[in-house]
């Protein structure tokens, strides 16, 4: 009984190493040579199951579901109460940061703009970005802003990779992905609104429609150029970065590539 319990723990530990940390079956077996005969076949079956399950939702379903989700998200937003900020932490934060700016002076915020994740001013930089996003009213304006913030994240990844900080590279890559997800979501939401406007076309002139599409096309071009430049920059760093950072850097490159693909698809 005790031995079975022990084996269950070993199996689970190895599965965790295999599935979550990307270690090989051999690495696990080396740690438990006495259980290797029983453990090996089970780990191979688990790995096969995991690989067989690497199915992806169809891209058209993904896009449709994301749009539907965006619509539901907007529907369930509570009505705003005039004198209360409690319902909207983003606005509360915006006001707080503006107050900090007034108290600390513009110099702090300006200095924070160029700060890196290892700087004490970095949280001010992130908070300021949130304020920009909150204060940007249009979807396409926010798309453009998120695209600019992606550029900042790439610079930060390169800086932290040079310093050999794996954890920060991963955290910033996640932030970068979040910006690209928002680009795709906002672009899809905008496209949905655009379609909805075609029905009562009386109020929207041909020029409005032209400008809207022109704006999308312009953003698409910007994004395409960013995607190519940033991938090149990250690939360059990959060659010179410390070995320990390279796996995280590769993941960041993959995240950026997939994120840009989705974003460009949404801007089509």
């Amino acid at each position: 009984m005790k031995e079975t319990k022990e084996f269950n723990n070993i199996l689970d530990e190895c599965l965790e190493r295999l599935l979550a940390r990307g270690e090989s079956i051999e690495q696990c077996l080396v740690s438990y040579p006495e259980q290797a005969d029983e453990l090996g076949p089970l780990l191979r079956t688990a790995l096969e199951a995991k690989e067989a399950l690497a199915i992806q939702p169809r891209p058209e379903f993904r896009a449709r579901a994301r749009y539907h989700f965006g619509s539901v998200l907007r529907e369930v937003k509570p009505k705003r109460r005039f004198f209360s900020l409690g319902w909207q932490p983003r606005w509360a934060m915006a006001v707080s940061v503006v107050l900090i700016m007034l108290l600390a002076g513009g110099g702090t915020v300006a200095a924070a703009g160029g700060s890196m994740p290892d700087s004490p001013l970095y949280p001010v930089k992130l908070a300021t970005e949130q304020v920009w996003l909150t204060l940007t009213p249009s979807n396409m304006g926010r798309v453009e802003l998120h695209a600019k913030l992606v550029e900042r994240r790439v610079v930060e990844i390169i800086y932290m990779a040079d310093k050999g900080d794996v954890q920060q590279v991963e955290v910033i890559a996640q932030r970068l992905d979040n910006h690209l997800v928002m680009v795709a979501s906002l672009a899809l939401a905008e496209r949905g609104e655009e379609r909805a406007m075609f029905a009562p076309a009386a109020e929207e002139t041909g020029e409005d429609v032209y400008n809207r599409r022109n704006n999308r096309a312009r953003l698409r071009l910007i994004l395409e150029s960013h995607a190519a430049n940033q991938q090149d920059k990250l690939q360059d760093v990959l060659e010179t970065a410390p070995e320990s950072v390279k796996p995280a850097l590769r993941r960041a490159i993959a995240v950026s590539g997939t994120g840009y693909e989705r974003a460009l698809e949404a801007l089509d």
Partner: peptide, 9 residues
């Protein structure tokens, strides 16, 4: 708190 960006993430 109905933060759209957070739920999207």
């Amino acid at each position: 708190q109905r933060d759209e960006e957070a739920f999207t993430q």
